[in-house]
Each structure stands twice: as C-alpha cells, then as structure tokens.
Design a binder for these strands. Structure first.
Length: 323
DNA sequence: AAGACGAAAGTGGTTGA
DNA sequence: TCAACAACTTTCGTCTT
C-alpha cells in the first residue's frame, strides 16, 4: 500500500538531474546540458529553462549587397532589420525622458516643451489601440515560448505572421492570447517543417494541450493554412543532434524512413515514434548505437514504441542487424 | 547490472453507425 | 452519442549481453 513509487526513466516528462550526462553543453542558468544552437541567430538556447546564453553576434541580419556607390548610399544601414516579431515592426524610436541633449546639456524651455509634446504623442501612437496592446502581449509570449522550444527565428517570424492574420480576422475574440500564440507556433513549426508536437508546445505554455489544439484547428480552417502532414524525416535532424549522431547516421535513418514509406509502414503511425525507430536502426548499422531508452527519451515516446516500430521496420524492410 | 524483449492491461483520439 | 478500434503508454517479469 505504502510503496514508494519506483523511478521510471522512460517517462517522457521525467527530467534528468542537472550535471547528468545529456546532449549539448551545460547551461549556466540551470545546469542542464540542454544547450542547442540556433543557427539563424547564433544564440545558444537552453531547452530546459529557455535561457539565451553565449556570445550573441549583434544584429547579423541582412546587410544589403551594394554594387555601386549610389546603391551603397541608398541601402546603407539604419537600425536593425525590420522584423514582424516586434509589434510596430521595429520602426519606432524611443524618446528618452531626460531633459538633456546628447551632450548632457540641459534643454531650453522651448525645446523642453517640444520634447514633452513628442513624448506624449509617442505614447499615444505607439500603443494606441487595444489591438496593439494585444500584439505587444502576444509577441512577448511568442518570444518566451519560442525560446523555450528552441525554435529558429524564421519559424518565429512565421508564427508572428499567422498571429497577425488571426487578429485581422478577429479570431482572437474569446480566445486567450497564450492559446492563440501556442497554436500559431505549432502551425508555423509544422509549415516550416521543423515540427514541434502539440505536447511540446503545451508543456511550455500556460494553457492546456486541448485548448492549443482547438485554436490550431480554428487557425487552419479560418486562415486556410496549408499544413503538410508531419513527416518522420522532419524530426531526424533534431533528434540526431540531441543524440549527437553523425550526419551519415542521420542520412541512413532518412533512407530507412523513405523505404518504410514506400512499403506503406508509415500510415497512421506516430511520426516521432517512427523517427526514433529509424534512428535506433541507423545507429546500430553505423556503429553509433544508442540505447532504446536514450532515444525514447529524446523522442518523447516510450521504449515499447521504439521497439515495436523498429521490429516492424527490420522485418518488413529485410534489414539485417547484428549485435 | 544494464539493456532488450514481449505480454497484458489501460488511455485518449478517431471513425462510423 | 456511443461503441468499436488502432496506436500508444504503463507496468512488469524474463531473457540477453
């Protein structure tokens, strides 16, 4: 009756202790070895606590190519590249509150009055409608969620676009910002073929999986989003990186999955489970064996699923494995 | 001792009457 | 709306390396 519950490491939500050997480097914030590189920003993002660490390359966004001096003049940089993830698309200038000029001298009274007027208008214009206030909140939630999920910048931008479209269609009425942002992120990650599962999104959100799912369905139908069915191949690079597998091994896994698809083994099956199984088999073939438990944990499925899928793959594709 | 295996029962989502 | 169903999970005892 009073049995102490046994530790079961196959539980998908079981967190490894800090300092335990995991993939990636150690996060200075939380101690987990869950740092992953966001190629688009060069940031190291912790998949555990969402901390952004490492040397950030300042604003490496598009510096336009110029082929003539006129072009150079026209296109020389002013400020950061425009981004839809900033509520006013990054075009605003913030007027400081101090009544001093850039040299620290006090301003004349007429100048002071002018600055006061400017500031007043700025606050009115910048966040002038409830629509904008909603966006400000949504985009900060988007920031948080996408950094926790380790989502690349491009996907984040797509999420922001989807969210804006949802706002235009007034889909935000009666729905929570968090759920709508979660749904946008989920949709965007699938559209851009770096899928996160509904589970993963919901795990880092304050709203339930059910609600995110409901919002997602609304988004798809109302915005007529073209969302491709998730392919197990899309998961390979993420899982492969987490498990520190070579590119060769990942390619082998992709081959196996392609074979499985032509054999009709993929229908109705959990794509993450299939990807996990393919990685298991590929690991053995390429001499980079990972245990079923390790793979199950990174793919967030159970060992049993990995086993069932890989047995099926081996049997139906006639793959010989040794060891 | 860790990893792999498979049976059996339970769970949540989809489908079709 | 409900039952049947397939896929997946949980749990656990056993075999293999």
């Amino acid at each position: 009756m009073t049995d102490i519950p046994k530790t079961n490491f196959s539980r998908p939500n079981q967190k490894p202790k800090p300092d335990e050997e995991e993939s990636g480097h150690k996060c200075p914030e939380c101690g987990y070895r869950r740092l992953i590189l966001d190629e688009t920003t060069g940031d190291q993002i912790c998949r555990e606590c969402g901390a952004v660490v490492g040397d950030r390359i300042v604003d490496e966004g598009p510096e336009w190519r110029a082929f003539s001096s006129e072009e150079r003049d026209q296109r020389s940089r002013v400020g950061s590249p425009m981004s839809v993830t900033i509520h006013d698309k990054g075009l605003s200038t913030i007027i400081g509150w101090e009544d001093r000029d850039i040299y620290g001298r006090r301003l004349s009274s007429t100048k002071r009055a002018e600055m006061y007027r400017l500031r007043k208008w700025q606050t009115r214009i910048r966040v002038h409608s409830s629509l904008d206030r909603n966006l400000v909140q949504a985009l900060s939630e988007l920031d948080r969620l996408s950094s926790q999920l380790g989502i690349p910048r491009g996907v984040k931008e797509t999420s922001a676009v989807i969210y804006r479209k949802a706002m235009e269609k007034k889909l935000s009425r009666g729905r929570s910002i968090e759920a709508l942002v979660g749904a946008s992120v989920y949709a965007a990650s699938r559209i851009r073929r770096v899928p996160r599962s509904l589970d993963e999104v919901a795990r880092h959100s304050v709203v339930s999986k059910k609600e995110v799912g409901k919002c997602y369905r609304v988004l798809v139908t109302e915005l007529e989003l073209k969302v491709p069915p998730p392919s197990p191949i899309d998961y390979l690079s993420r899982f492969g990186t987490d498990l520190q597998l070579s590119g060769m091994c990942q390619r082998r896994a992709a081959e196996i999955l392609t074979g499985a698809k032509t054999e009709g083994l993929t229908g109705g099956k959990d794509p993450t489970g299939l990807a996990a199984a393919a990685i298991y088999v590929a690991g053995i073939i390429e001499g980079e064996r990972r245990t079923q438990r390790e793979i199950a944990e990174t793919a967030r499925v159970t060992e049993v699923t990995v086993r069932n899928r890989y047995k099926e793959l081996v049997r139906r594709l006639g793959i010989e494995i040794s060891g």
